Simulated scan of single mutants.
Amino acid sequence: MPRRGSDAAQPARPRRRLRRRLRIGLTPLIDVVFILLVFFMLASSFEDWRSLPLAAAPAMAGAPAPAMAGAMLVEVAPAGLRLAGAPVSGAALRRRLAERLAAVPEQRVLLRALPGAEMQRLVAAVDLLRAAGVRDLALAPAGGAR
């Protein structure tokens, strides 16, 4: 459709859009970060919800202490578990501990991590010993490999 009047005589020129620079405000961003911070602080628990009840065994320099006499020694090695120096599987350890605890309910068990053993293996051994019914568990000082 042709244009009428003075607009028809002038060639159409492209309209210039005035671009307004958008300013990003930091206030909403700071508000969101603050709300998230408060949320996570309130949702977090700062108490130690799961601790490992372990007694530290006395240092075994020379002769064993009288309280350690008759204690079973479980070692956590990089390759697996040992009971009294002999390699043992987790199921066999649990079975032998259950047999021993049936005879002596207050059996003391010493747990020792050998050099190179991972902390996760040590924690898994504590869980295994607790599941077997061990009530008197002590963490022995780290020793060398046998």
Rank of each mutant, 00 (worst) to 15 (best):
P14Y: 01
D127K: 11
G144F: 06
G85R: 05
M1P: 10
V104L: 13
A125Q: 03
L26F: 12
A131T: 10
P53D: 09
R95C: 04
A117V: 09
R16S: 09
E106C: 03
V76M: 11
A138E: 09
L128A: 06
A9G: 11
Q120H: 08
I24S: 06
A140P: 00
F34K: 02
L114Q: 09
M1V: 14
M68I: 10
A98L: 08
R96K: 15
A56L: 15
D31R: 00
E47T: 14
Q120M: 09
P11V: 13
A77E: 12
L139Q: 05
S45R: 15
I30P: 00
A59N: 08
M119R: 11
V109T: 10
P58N: 07
Q120I: 09
R21F: 02
R17K: 14
I24A: 14
R13T: 13
R121P: 01
A61Y: 02
R3A: 15
V123R: 13
G116N: 07
P115N: 05
L81D: 04
A125I: 03
V76I: 14
V134N: 03
D7Q: 13
A9V: 15
L18W: 09
S45Y: 01
L111T: 02
A91K: 13
R20Y: 05
A63D: 10
F39G: 03
Q120G: 06
I30E: 00
A138L: 15
A55Y: 00
D48L: 10
F34G: 09
F39Q: 00
P78I: 06
F46P: 01
A8K: 07
S51A: 10
F40I: 05
R146P: 15
A124G: 04
G62M: 13
Q10M: 13
L37R: 06
A125P: 04
V33R: 00
A113H: 00
L137K: 05
G90F: 03
R50D: 03
L128H: 01
D7E: 13
P58Q: 08
G90W: 03
L97H: 04
L110A: 05
D127I: 05
A142T: 14
A67H: 04
A117K: 01
R130W: 05
Q107T: 13
I35M: 13
V38M: 13
A102E: 11
P14L: 14
G116S: 07
A57Q: 00
A98H: 10
P105Q: 09
A103I: 12
G25Y: 08
L110C: 08
E75S: 15
G85S: 10
G25W: 11
S6Q: 15
A65I: 06
M60F: 02
M41H: 07
E47M: 06
A140F: 01
D136W: 02
W49I: 11
L81E: 04
L81P: 03
P66M: 00
A113N: 02
R96M: 13
V38W: 03
Q10D: 09
A8I: 09
L37G: 12
L52M: 14
A69Y: 03
D136T: 07
A102C: 06
G90I: 05
A132K: 05
A69Q: 15
I24D: 04
L73Y: 10
R121K: 14
D31Q: 08
V33T: 05
L101Q: 10
R135T: 11
